[in-house]
């Protein structure tokens, strides 16, 4: 399904950071969000994922068809790799985790506790979770942090397979995943104007005006 985002305005901690964000994301395509630190990439992704309300604007796709991968992987240290993955699969009503283990090269680690994984291995497990959600739109926040070159290639292949299957991906990343079908959206032009410049009031200003 096509993701349509229209004139979305998002706020972090009550302060507007982005406004007027508009884009289309077709099935089979990936869109890469670019912008300096603090421009609001994470806030935008969380808003689209339905974790926080937008100040205005509209997202055409319900949160139920999106899988969100944040900085934190949502892993339990005392559970094994397979138990962690099986849990998220069961939550999303799926059973098969083998394909996800193979795709992120976790087969040899399946019985190891997540506490004993390296940072890159944890990240791979966190990304394998996306494969067991069965959801069409992936929202990825810096997915390649702490991944080595081989793992980035592995992840790039997983994203390409997802796109080839009719899914789509919206990601904030600084690393080139080698995705030919990726478009780039620079968030700098959507930066919210300050109050003085006639921009929107934050919740704080509103309370104390």
């Amino acid at each position: 399904m096509e993701v349509r985002v229209d004139t979305l305005a998002v706020a972090r901690g009550g302060i507007p950071v982005l406004e007027g964000v508009t884009f289309r994301l077709q099935p089979g395509r990936a869109l890469i969000l670019r912008g300096p630190n603090g421009v609001g990439k994470t806030t935008l992704l969380r808003t689209i994922a339905g974790l926080q309300p937008a100040l205005e604007g509209r997202v055409s796709v319900p949160p139920e068809s999106m899988a969100y991968a944040a900085h934190a992987d949502g892993l339990k240290a005392v559970l094994t790799v397979e138990e962690n993955l099986r849990f998220w699969a069961a939550v999303h009503g799926l059973r098969d985790v083998e394909a996800a283990l193979v795709a992120m090269d976790l087969l040899s680690l399946r019985d190891r506790r997540a506490a004993n994984l390296s940072a890159g291995q944890k990240r791979r497990l966190g990304l394998a979770r996306l494969l067991v959600t069965g959801r069409a739109v992936w929202l990825l926040d810096e997915p390649t942090v702490s991944l080595d070159v081989a793992s980035v290639a592995l992840f790039g292949a997983a994203v390409r397979a997802h796109l080839a299957g009719g899914g789509s991906a919206l990601m904030a990343t600084h690393i080139d995943l080698g995705l030919a079908e990726a478009d780039v959206l620079d968030l700098e032009p959507f930066r919210a104007r300050g109050r003085v410049a006639g921009g929107r009031m934050g919740a704080f200003d509103e309370a104390f005006q």
Binding site: M1, R4, A54, S60, V61, E64, S65, L94, R135, A136
Partner: peptide, 13 residues
């Protein structure tokens, strides 16, 4: 707060 269109699921939506 967001108005969501009715989207069709993917797999188990």
């Amino acid at each position: 707060f967001l108005q969501r269109g009715s989207g069709r699921g993917f797999g188990c939506g």
